[in-house]
Simulated scan of single mutants.
Amino acid sequence: MCRWLAYSGSPVLLEELLYKPANSLVTQSRHSRLGAETTNGDGFGVGWYADAATPGLFLSTEPAWNDRNLRELSAQVSAGRVFAHVRASTGTAVQQTNCHPFRHGRWLWMHNGLITDFNLVRRDLAMTVDPSLYHEIEGSTDSEILFHLALTFGLETDPLAAVARAVGCVEAAGRDHGLVYPIQMTVATTDGETTWAFRYSSRGRSRSLFHSNDITTLREQYPDNPMLHSLSADTRLVVSEPLGDLHGAWREVPESACLVVTGGAGELRPFTPLR
Rank of each mutant, 00 (worst) to 15 (best):
A79V: 06
S201R: 00
A188T: 10
L231V: 13
T54L: 11
A75F: 10
A79F: 09
F153Q: 05
V167L: 10
R199W: 00
P11A: 01
R81Q: 14
A166R: 03
E252I: 07
L14Q: 03
G174F: 02
F102W: 07
S201N: 01
E15S: 12
R251Y: 09
L228W: 08
F153W: 07
E16R: 09
S8Y: 06
V129G: 03
T152M: 09
H135N: 13
Y222A: 07
T217E: 11
A36Y: 12
V94L: 11
A249K: 13
Y49T: 04
R207T: 11
Q184T: 11
Q221Y: 13
L14W: 00
G244E: 10
R33N: 09
T262D: 15
V238M: 12
S10D: 10
I183E: 02
T90L: 05
F83L: 12
D191W: 05
P21M: 04
H111F: 04
P182T: 00
A249F: 14
E156R: 14
Y49S: 10
H211R: 04
A84M: 02
T262R: 14
V180G: 06
L59I: 11
L259R: 02
D158L: 02
L259V: 00
Y7D: 07
F44I: 02
G264W: 00
T195R: 02
N225E: 13
V170S: 04
S206V: 01
R122L: 05
H85I: 11
A88K: 10
S78N: 13
K20H: 08
L231P: 08
T194Q: 12
V129Y: 02
I183S: 03
S132T: 15
W65H: 08
G91I: 05
V187G: 02
A75W: 00
Q221I: 06
M227Q: 15
R33L: 14
T195V: 15
M110K: 00
V94Q: 12
R103K: 11
A64W: 02
V187P: 06
G168W: 12
L246K: 10
Y200Q: 01
W4G: 05
L13K: 13
W65S: 15
W48Q: 06
L13H: 09
Y7Q: 07
S140N: 14
F147S: 01
A197I: 00
D245Q: 08
N119E: 14
S8F: 02
M227I: 10
E15L: 01
